[in-house]
């Protein structure tokens, strides 16, 4: 079945205006891609590769200098686009930011989750229902009445995700949402993101520089210097570790290990991202090598 693209970008270009001392910085340079509805895509790139700029374009915080951007089939770069169209597009695309503190507006968890729905003008009873459901879904029901200040980073991010769920968005962009969290909090947020995608069919775009997180996606877009460097499934993207290293990026540790094994003459696959699978593959390869001798 042909799925409709929820996001379609054609030749997007964006530069940050320079000030008196510096020249304008080109952050995005002729970027084109499509994101299918219901997919799980990771956008990888080191700092300054343009990945966060891209996120800001997708949720209409910044506007592209040139190129076309279609959200849910609506062209937001058309000359006749109105403020209402942009607001309508924002309703479908949610964003979870990097700093958990700087996106929580209210001093009570459930009131923060309700904030987005309140902005949409949804009737009170309906908001109540959605907020309870959303908190349930991210496992934060028992913190509904507490203050976000007392939550851990991972919990705060889950509150932010609940806010997105409550607004019933079609697509969620995680803009390095795990960068400031400890390993446990990161696991929490990743699990919630996976759940959103697998169970609710919400399109997830995960912007990250953690290879292990990117490996969980269906598709990876690698950004480098404002351009798309690679685009494909994790096995495709990580099949050439040298290219990734050249772009200043890493590959998952499992891939790196397998790649080094292969260079050392062992016959191993590269596309295994789970430690256990990787260990099994190495054991197999070593057994084969022994038997070969």
């Amino acid at each position: 079945m042909q799925k409709t693209p929820i996001i379609k970008a054609e030749h997007l270009t964006f530069s940050y205006p320079g000030d008196a001392e510096s020249k304008p910085v080109r952050a995005l340079d002729d970027v084109s891609f499509e994101i299918e509805e219901g997919s799980f895509t990771a956008i990888l790139g080191h700092n300054g590769s343009g990945k966060s700029t891209l996120a800001k374009l997708l949720c209409m915080v910044n506007y592209p200098d040139s190129g076309e951007l279609l959200l849910c089939g609506k062209d937001l770069t058309a000359p006749d686009v109105t403020e209402e169209d942009i607001l309508a597009a924002r309703r479908d695309i949610g964003m979870v930011f990097q700093n958990p503190d700087n996106q929580i507006v209210a001093s009570i968890v459930e009131e923060d989750v309700a904030f987005g729905c309140e902005n949409l003008g949804i009737p009170s009873a309906e908001i109540r229902k959605r907020v309870d459901q959303a908190l349930e879904e991210v496992g934060m029901t028992k913190y509904a009445r507490s203050s976000p200040h007392n939550l851990s980073g991972g919990q705060k991010q889950r509150v932010a995700i609940a806010g997105v769920i409550a607004m019933k968005r079609k697509c969620v962009i995680f803009d390095e949402s795990t960068a400031m969290l400890d390993p446990l909090g990161r696991q929490d947020v990743m699990n919630t993101a996976m759940k959103l995608n697998r169970e609710d069919g919400i399109t997830v775009i995960l912007i990250t520089h953690y290879m292990s997180e990117a490996a969980m996606a269906d598709r990876i877009i690698v950004m480098n210097q404002g351009k798309i460097l690679r685009d494909g499934t994790p096995s495709e993207v990580f099949s050439d570790p040298e290219a990734m290293w050249d772009a200043g990026l890493d590959v998952p540790q499992t891939t790196e290990l397998l790649y080094k094994m292969r260079k050392a003459g062992y016959d191993v696959r590269l596309d295994l991202f789970d430690e256990n699978d990787c260990a099994a593959e190495i054991a197999r390869a070593m057994k084969r090598a022994r038997e070969g001798k």
Partner: peptide, 12 residues
């Protein structure tokens, strides 16, 4: 950052 987050959550 908060202003951006509020905008993304449709605050008008």
């Amino acid at each position: 950052e908060l202003a951006t987050a509020m905008e993304c959550r449709c605050y008008t």
